[in-house]
Amino acid sequence: MELRVTSGWRSADEQRQVVRDTITRYGSEQEAHRWVLPPEHSAHVQGLAVDVGPTEGAYWLDEHGAQFGLCRTYDNEVWHFEPVIDPGGTCPARHPDSTWGW
């Protein structure tokens, strides 16, 4: 099983570009907001998020991440994890998507 970091810390400018790219990809702000947060709410900009791959590795981390203090925080993003608990704790309920932060 392979697990690698595909994205981590981003500057606010990089996050703004991710937002623009996602709007272009999905064709609307409404749909893009399901997948990406503005810089002021992004855990990536705060240095508190990591995206992982490949998918098999992400599913492994979803199953075992709590022992390391890492939790998947969005239902629609199997690859996105944040350190929201102490190692060995219980992960909180996930957000359905990123629309909460807009």
Results as ranks from 00 to 15, higher is better:
Arg72Asp: 13
Val19Ala: 06
Pro92His: 10
Ala32Asn: 10
Val78Leu: 04
Gly53Thr: 02
Asp51Cys: 12
Pro83Gln: 09
Pro83Phe: 06
His44Tyr: 08
Tyr74Asn: 08
Arg20Gln: 15
Leu3Ser: 04
Val45Asn: 04
Gln15Asn: 11
Gly8Ile: 14
Leu48Thr: 08
Thr24Arg: 15
His44Ala: 13
Ser7Asn: 10
Trp60Asp: 11
Val45Ile: 09
Arg34Ala: 10
Val84Leu: 07
Val18Ser: 07
Tyr74Leu: 13
Tyr74Gly: 03
Phe81Val: 05
Arg72Gly: 08
Glu82Ala: 07
Gly88Phe: 04
Arg94Gly: 02
Met1Glu: 12
Arg25Gly: 09
Trp102Lys: 12
Phe81His: 05
Asp21Cys: 03
Thr99Met: 00
Thr90Pro: 03
Val45Met: 07
Asp75Gly: 00
Asp75Leu: 05
Ala49Phe: 09
Gln30Ser: 13
Ala93Asn: 14
Val36Arg: 03
Gly53Glu: 00
Gly101Gln: 04
His41Pro: 01
Asp13Leu: 09
Gln67Thr: 12
Val18Ile: 14
Cys91Tyr: 01
Met1His: 14
Asp86Trp: 08
Gly69Ile: 14
Arg94Trp: 03
Arg10His: 10
Gly57Arg: 02
Trp100Met: 07
Asp21Thr: 03
Trp100Ile: 06
Glu40Asp: 14
Tyr26Val: 04
Arg4Thr: 15
Ile85Val: 13
Tyr74Gln: 06
Pro87Gln: 02
Ala66Leu: 09
Glu56Asp: 13
Thr22Arg: 02
Gly27Leu: 13
Cys91Thr: 02
Pro96Trp: 05
Ile85His: 00
Thr90Phe: 04
Val36Glu: 08
Asp21Lys: 02
Phe68Arg: 12
Pro87Arg: 00
Arg4Phe: 11
Trp35Val: 01
Pro96Leu: 04
His33Gln: 14
Ile85Phe: 00
Ala66Tyr: 07
Glu31Tyr: 01
Ile85Gly: 02
Val78Thr: 02
Gly27Glu: 09
Gln30Met: 08
Tyr74Cys: 00
Glu31Ser: 04
Asp21Gln: 13
Asp51His: 11
Ala66Gly: 07
Arg20Met: 10
Glu14Lys: 03
Asp75Thr: 08
Asp21Val: 01
Trp79Lys: 06
Ala32Asp: 08
Leu48Asn: 14
Ala32Glu: 01
Asp86Cys: 03
Gly89Asn: 11
Thr55Arg: 05
Asp51Met: 11
Thr6Val: 14
Arg94Pro: 02
Ser7Lys: 13
Trp60Val: 03
Gly88Arg: 09
Asp62Cys: 01
Thr6Leu: 11
Ala43Lys: 08
Leu37Ala: 15
Leu48Pro: 01
Cys71Ala: 05
Trp35His: 12
Thr73Phe: 08
Asp62Trp: 03
Ser98Lys: 06
Asp75Asn: 04
Asp86Val: 14
Val18Glu: 06
Pro83Trp: 06
Val50Gly: 00
Met1Phe: 12
Phe81Cys: 05
Gly47Glu: 08
Pro39Tyr: 09
Cys71Asp: 03
Ser11His: 07
Val18Tyr: 05
Gln67Glu: 15
Pro54Thr: 13
Thr6Asp: 08
Ala32Val: 01
Val50Asp: 00
Thr24Ala: 15
His80Thr: 02
